[in-house]
């Protein structure tokens, strides 16, 4: 909480007082009764005591200035502010303007009263690392799968209420982007190239199916999960999703139009002249596959909460092994 210190009326007829000296500096610890400053009126010079304890957060009127009675000359805050009081804060002025001969006749814009919104008085040291939110806001966030940390990232003041949850509706991805991890590799592409031609000729399968199968198997091995949906995005063509059952032969991999978030995404750049692309936050583990000469360049990006570092590396390992020896898959 902030307490304004005003120029006190020290005499019955006093209009203003001159600050002779400040006895405290900004940042000083103030106790009630401490001498803050010395003020000279038309009749006398008096010491002025603090009426609040706390820290001297800001001084608006320097030594030697003549200040009208009632004007805010400084602020005492309950907590150490570390200079948090914005520079733009200026004291509220009494209605009477004291015009010095040199002051221009242009009216200054109405100064804002130096008070901080009440929602800002959270002392971050007192939250024990918790995010402060109302019980209802926390419950709704949990039910809807919202991470309140997103609101912290946005810099919104705590505590959060139900009305703050509307921020989740306007955010771009389905959930707040977390930390992403990635791994990159370059492998000889000859075997996979031949394999692609083989399945195309013999089984009339596009090479995309092989990519989906290899990625899915590597992912299934690491996480031990069964049917997964792999989305293959070739940038220029329509995105296709495949359902890959566990231990499926290539012919069992079918296209799906299930409207759910895929488990894996493959960004296929093999027909383009560049080999890696990242166009937004990775919501699920994403393989980017590009061609560079005779080699294939593979990048696997994943949200850290989908794959940890070891899983990421193992998943990549499985995938590039299959690229190098694609026939092993058929066995």
């Amino acid at each position: 909480m902030m307490h304004d210190i005003i120029m006190p009326a020290l005499g019955m007829t006093q209009d203003s007082g001159r600050i002779i000296s400040w006895k405290k500096r900004v940042g000083d610890d103030i106790a009630i009764g401490d001498i803050l400053m010395e003020v000279e009126t038309d009749k006398t010079t008096m010491e002025v005591e603090a009426q609040h304890s706390g820290f001297l957060a800001k001084i608006f009127s320097d030594e030697g200035t003549d200040v009208p009675v009632g004007e805010v000359i400084a602020i005492i805050s309950d907590t150490e502010t570390d200079g948090e009081i914005p520079e733009s804060s200026s004291p509220s002025k009494p209605e009477k303007e004291i015009k010095s001969p040199t002051s221009p006749s242009v009216e200054a814009p109405e100064p804002e009263v130096p008070s901080l919104p009440k929602t800002h008085i959270i002392d971050k040291n007192n939250t024990h690392g918790k995010i402060l939110a109302s019980p209802k806001a926390k419950r709704l966030a949990r039910e809807r799968g919202f991470d309140l940390g997103y609101l912290v990232q946005l810099g919104l003041p705590q505590p959060y209420h139900v009305s703050d949850l509307k921020e989740f509706e306007s955010r771009p991805p389905a959930h707040a982007p977390g930390i992403e991890i990635y791994v990159r590799a370059e492998v000889d592409g000859t075997a996979f190239q031949n394999f692609g031609e083989l399945i195309n000729e013999r089984a009339d399968l596009p090479i995309k199916v092989a990519m989906a199968a290899f990625a899915a198997r590597s992912y299934q091995e690491v996480l031990g999960i069964r049917d997964i949906v792999v989305q293959v995005d070739t940038i220029s063509e329509t995105t296709i999703s495949y359902t890959v059952p566990e231990f499926a032969s290539l012919s069992k991999i079918v296209q799906t139009d299930e409207a759910r978030l895929p488990d894996l995404i493959i960004t296929d750049l093999t027909h383009l002249r560049f080999s890696s692309l990242k166009s937004g936050p990775a919501l699920v583990p994403t393989f980017t596959i590009g061609v560079k000469g005779d080699s294939i360049e593979v990048m696997l990006i994943s949200p850290q909460d989908s794959l940890d570092q070891l899983q990421l590396v193992n998943c990549m390992e499985g995938f590039i092994n299959r690229l190098e020896e694609p026939l092993m898959y058929l066995l």
Partner: peptide, 12 residues
């Protein structure tokens, strides 16, 4: 009004 506006009624 203060609680409807989500203001802190007491220090957190």
């Amino acid at each position: 009004l203060s609680i409807c506006r989500g203001e802190l009624v007491h220090d957190a």
